[in-house]
């Protein structure tokens, strides 16, 4: 009996290790394949640098690239936080009445579907004396829609019988919001959060591309841009790698947060035994 229990436990543990090992293995194979390809075909580094060259450049240029990355992180984080706060508040407003939602939702959609590349120059001109804020605004526009739409959906999908229960026990609008609708919306909100985190980064990068400004407060996208202008392709790849790692880190961080918050109740975060 005891033996069986440890066996089950052991199986679980090895499963956890494999869930890390498997993707790491795929990554390793890709990098090795890339390296071999570059060596065999003798592609010049200004067309496709090998992974070794990229890492070497990354280390050499760290002093230049890392401060830029931090700027992009700042823009992303500010835009993301603004998107979360404004998105949730707007969703709560939408959830107060069907008419408010119907009147304003289309405009949230318009904001979402307008290509950011097209309006970024305008925003940068409007906020001429503060390019940093302009970039934050652009990233915010891209990031906020998933929060609004997901949270609105979540607020409106509270269990019908529970809503009846709240009504019978005389709950106020406010109590229903706090104790029923917001908790019901949490899984939807967190889903939106994960999408929005990545979008905030994309928004920041796109806006930096459009802005194309140099100076002290230029982000990682500017480094990508300038490197490719100067045909410093390994440097461009190094900056690209940093951006990718940042994106993955944002996603993983938000996934862990989401699993923590939903750990004891939501299907998405539970390993059911049946």
């Amino acid at each position: 009996m005891k033996k069986q229990v440890t066996q089950v436990f052991g199986k679980k543990k090895s499963e956890a290790i494999w869930s890390w090992l498997a993707p790491a293995f795929v990554g390793l194979v890709t990098v090795v394949g890339w390296d071999v390809f570059v060596r065999i075909t003798n592609v010049p580094p200004y067309l496709l640098p090998g992974p070794g060259v990229v890492i070497k450049t990354l280390i050499e240029e760290w002093g230049d690239l890392f401060p830029s990355l931090l700027i992009t992180v700042q823009i992303t984080v500010m835009a993301f936080l603004a998107a979360v706060v404004s998105g949730v508040l707007i969703a709560i407003l939408f959830a107060q009445s069907k008419w408010v939602e119907r009147s304003f939702f289309p405009y949230a959609v318009i904001l979402q579907t307008t290509p950011i590349v097209a309006i970024a120059p305008l925003i940068i001109i409007w906020l001429q004396n503060n390019t940093f804020m302009a970039l934050v605004v652009c990233a915010w526009i891209v990031a906020f829609f998933p929060i609004v739409s997901n949270t609105t959906l979540g607020l409106n999908s509270a269990d019908h019988t529970l809503q009846n229960l709240f009504e019978i026990y005389g709950a106020s609008r406010w109590q229903t919001l706090i104790h029923l609708r917001l908790p019901s919306a949490l899984p939807y909100f967190l889903g939106g959060l994960r999408i929005s985190g990545g979008l905030a980064l994309i928004g920041a990068v796109v806006a930096e591309f459009v802005a194309g400004t140099g100076g002290t407060r230029s982000g990682i996208a500017y480094q990508i841009l300038i490197s490719s202008f100067n045909l410093q392709i390994p440097r461009m790849f190094a900056a690209l790698l940093m951006t990718t790692v940042l994106g993955v880190a944002i996603f993983v961080g938000l996934t862990i947060l989401s699993d923590r918050l939903l750990a004891h109740w939501h299907e998405s975060a539970i390993k059911r035994e049946n």
Binding site: T161, L162, Y169, G170, Q175, H179, P183, H264
Partner: peptide, 18 residues
């Protein structure tokens, strides 16, 4: 019709909490 995010005590407490 229990609240999945609340434990037994909190679920039972609901009408009184309201």
């Amino acid at each position: 019709a229990l609240m999945p995010w609340a434990n037994v005590v909190d679920n039972i407490h609901l009408p009184l909490k309201l």
